[in-house]
């Protein structure tokens, strides 16, 4: 799963680069507009190490932001799963806020909190929180009647059991949503850094943008793609392992 993610990214990246170079050749564009293969390689040699640390810096913020939003989304999703007024209120609020582009709030956060760790973390978690919340709310609010019926009629149903049943039955969906939200968290952090932070790969891309250096941007995109692919691959592998451990007995395999 981990390697598949990396292969997929490499294929997409190569296709995109090939397309750029086809345009460069077709329109006879200079290296200033679209850098050639040698210039990109030379730039990579100069900045690769620095960019790896920048991406890791960004990823650490994204991972923290994602973890924060997962905890928050589960807390709110579990509280809002009931069809009580508070549950309906949470659902309606989440749907409405989700419709608003959260990234547009980033400048306000930077004005109020300044550059640094907290605003980057806040933007990363806000961007992946609402899609996560909607998926978790959807999963937690949908009864698994064939399993829950017995516990309800015999008076054994507790909220912990209800959550466990619904999470277990939707484990694949949850794993997909969580690994998908990693991209959102990363995108959120980069956008935050791009707007006003003083560290991370988004900040480096901003500098490259001011220098109109596409070669640096292509190297940065490569680093981001590889590292996010590894992170997503790890998340998916973890999800798969949890699923296997939870659902397959020692005596045999699930058909």
């Amino acid at each position: 799963m981990l390697f598949r993610r990396i292969y997929q990214f490499l294929i997409v990246y190569m296709v995109a680069i090939a397309f750029l170079w086809m345009i460069k050749m077709g329109l006879s564009l200079s290296d200033y507009v679209i850098p050639g293969i040698f210039l990109v390689a030379e730039t990579a040699g100069q900045v690769a190490e620095e960019y790896v640390f920048d991406v890791i810096n960004t990823l650490s913020i994204a991972v923290l932001g994602q973890a924060l939003s997962i905890v928050l989304a589960f807390t709110v999703g579990i509280s809002g799963r009931k069809s009580s007024w508070i549950g309906s209120f949470i659902k309606v609020t989440a749907y409405n806020i989700q419709a608003y582009p959260i990234v547009a709030l980033a400048p306000i956060i930077f004005i109020l909190l300044g550059d640094g760790f907290i605003p980057r973390l806040l933007i990363a978690s806000m961007i992946c929180y609402f899609p996560l919340l909607l998926s978790i709310l959807g999963i937690m609010a949908t009864p698994v009647e064939d399993i829950e019926h017995f516990y309800i009629v015999t008076g054994r149903m507790r909220w912990q059991l209800e959550v466990k049943i619904r999470a277990f039955e939707n484990l694949s969906k949850l794993t997909t949503v969580i690994s998908g939200s990693a991209t959102l968290a990363m995108a959120g952090t980069i956008v935050g850094e791009f707007i006003a932070a003083n560290a991370g790969i988004g900040y480096s891309i901003r500098i490259a943008l001011y220098q109109s250096d596409i070669a640096k941007i292509l190297v940065a995109l490569f680093m981001i793609g590889i590292i996010i692919s590894i992170y997503q691959g790890i998340l998916e592998t973890m999800g798969e392992q949890i699923k296997n451990k939870w659902s397959i007995s020692k005596e045999g395999v699930v058909l």
């Binding site: 064939d146 399993i147 019926h149 017995f150 009629v153 049943i165 277990f168 659902s247």
Partner: peptide
Amino acid sequence: YSYNLERLPGW
């Protein structure tokens, strides 16, 4: 009330 499509949790 019990019915034939009920399931036990899989964990």
